[in-house]
Simulated scan of single mutants.
Amino acid sequence: MKWTELCIYTTNEAIEPISNIIHEAGASGIVIEDPQDLLVERDTSYGEIYELNPEDYPEEGVRLKVYLPVNSFLGETVAEIKQAINNLLVYDIDIGLNKITLSEVNEEDWATAWKKYYKPVKISEKITITPTWEDYKPVSTDELIIELDPGMAFGTGTHPTTVLSIQALERYMKKGNRVLDVGCGSGVLSIASVLLGAEKVFAYDLDDVAVQSARLNTKVNKVNDSVEVKQNNLLDNVTEEPDIIVANILAEIILRFEKDAFHLLKPGGLFITSGIIQTKKQLVEQRLLEIGFELIEINQMEDWISIIAKKPE
């Protein structure tokens, strides 16, 4: 089978929204080539292996690669992706060079290209994320392993917004907590919640592809009995009263359901948000305070912000 590699030259700020656009277009995975990765000092004490070649990265900006099947709808799909990326300017998102190139690859080459980018990564004190094909062995008795298949899930779970979310869950999760994962994507935050002690997780996503990926990944990680995955628009018609609501979604989306989150949370419950770019930080903070939340923590990783807010007891 023939595939087309769609290569998008953009900025770090635009990675998350463009990723959402690509997923909505039907693609099942993305390669992110960010030259900043070459500058990061990585902890290899847990057995991680990093094989980063500077020639694989752009000289400036960020390069996103997605693989689309060569069929009669390809031209229309590419046009829709281009238009949706251009529309990000309306939200004051810097899309940088915004250059898009196309090249053809064979299915065998495509499958191999995916795997060379992913190695086990320890993203918090306890949690390590590893591709399903890696034979990774825990190096400590309290290490928690999440297995993901990037070809089916949305990313590897190592983007700063995901890392910030998981680190927050690790700090605040209590055994027996009930959690709502809004915009669950691959289900990585739901899986992490159960491994960290959650009794029950309700995972919601509007995208059916995400729902299927989350269900598969919860089964792979043997937590499917504790995670209920369903297609749903944010918190519409949700009646569960959780201890924690976690949402790794863009700020514009967070501000569509922050009131619902406040009303659903139990007194003393936490709203963990991520996916917030620096320019939207103050807006989200102000809205959460206006509703009645108390701001507990504000954390930053690269250009991304996470906010942990508490509903007063």
Rank of each mutant, 00 (worst) to 15 (best):
M1V: 11
T4H: 09
T4R: 14
Y9W: 10
T11P: 02
T11V: 04
A14I: 09
A14Q: 06
A14P: 05
E16L: 11
P17D: 05
P17I: 06
P17R: 05
H23R: 12
A27R: 02
S28W: 06
I32L: 04
I32M: 02
E33G: 03
D34H: 08
Q36G: 09
L38V: 12
V40G: 03
R42V: 15
R42P: 01
T44W: 05
S45V: 08
Y46S: 08
G47L: 10
E51Y: 10
L52G: 10
P54Q: 06
Y57P: 07
P58L: 07
E60I: 15
G61E: 05
R63L: 12
K65F: 01
Y67R: 07
P69I: 12
P69R: 12
S72E: 15
S72L: 13
F73K: 14
L74I: 09
V78W: 07
E80N: 15
E80Y: 12
E80F: 12
L88N: 07
L89Y: 04
Y91V: 02
I93K: 09
D94R: 10
D94M: 08
G96V: 08
E104K: 13
V105R: 15
D109K: 15
W114F: 14
K119W: 07
S124A: 01
E125F: 04
I127E: 03
I127Y: 04
I129C: 07
T130N: 02
T132G: 03
W133T: 06
Y136D: 03
K137L: 09
E143M: 15
L144M: 13
I146R: 05
I146N: 05
L148Y: 09
P150R: 14
A153I: 14
A153G: 15
F154I: 14
G155S: 12
T156D: 12
T156G: 15
G157V: 15
H159C: 13
P160V: 13
T162F: 11
T162V: 14
V163W: 11
Q167W: 04
A168M: 14
A168E: 10
E170Y: 10
Y172F: 15
Y172A: 07
C184Q: 11
G185P: 08
S186K: 12
V188Y: 08
L189R: 03
A192C: 11
V194C: 07
V194A: 03
L196E: 08
G197M: 10
E199L: 11
F202L: 14
A203D: 06
Y204A: 03
Q212I: 14
Q212S: 13
R215P: 01
K219V: 11
K219S: 09
N221C: 02
N221E: 03
D225C: 06
V227H: 04
V227G: 05
Q231K: 15
Q231S: 09
N232M: 08
D236P: 01
P242W: 05
I244V: 15
I245Y: 02
A247R: 01
N248E: 04
L250C: 02
I253D: 04
R256L: 12
K259H: 10
D260H: 04
L265V: 02
G269L: 01
S274D: 03
G275D: 01
K280P: 01
K280I: 04
K281V: 02
V284Q: 01
V284M: 00
E285T: 09
Q286H: 04
Q286M: 05
Q286L: 06
R287F: 02
R287V: 11
E290Y: 00
E302Q: 09
D303Q: 06
I305Y: 00
S306F: 00
A309K: 00
K310W: 00
E313N: 08
